[in-house]
């Protein structure tokens, strides 16, 4: 499975996104589910799935799906 697919799965599970959500274009606070608490859940789920530890700056900067994807690539995670 590609990195994009895995990350999409994490978003869908952690934020409980309904079917058909345009996950790739999601942004922080862009939908009801991705509020500050949802953000914490998402961080924990990403750390679990990819076995990484995000820096506080990264937690704060993770403002969209695309940013999260780039961040994981930057950490050397691939598909």
């Amino acid at each position: 499975m590609s990195l994009t697919d895995r990350l999409r799965g994490v978003f869908v599970d952690a934020l409980e996104l309904p079917e058909g959500t345009d996950v790739e274009n999601l942004t922080y606070r862009g939908i009801e589910q991705w509020d500050s608490l949802g953000h914490m859940t998402l961080v924990a789920a990403i750390e679990d799935e990819f076995d990484v530890q995000l820096e506080t700056d990264q937690v704060i900067d993770m403002s969209s799906f695309k940013v999260a994807l780039e961040m994981l690539r930057g950490l050397g995670v691939d598909g």
Partner: peptide, 14 residues
């Protein structure tokens, strides 16, 4: 978790 404490004022790990 110092990160979540500093950023989100969460005082306990999950």
């Amino acid at each position: 978790d110092e990160r979540l404490y500093r950023y989100a004022s969460m005082a306990w790990t999950p």
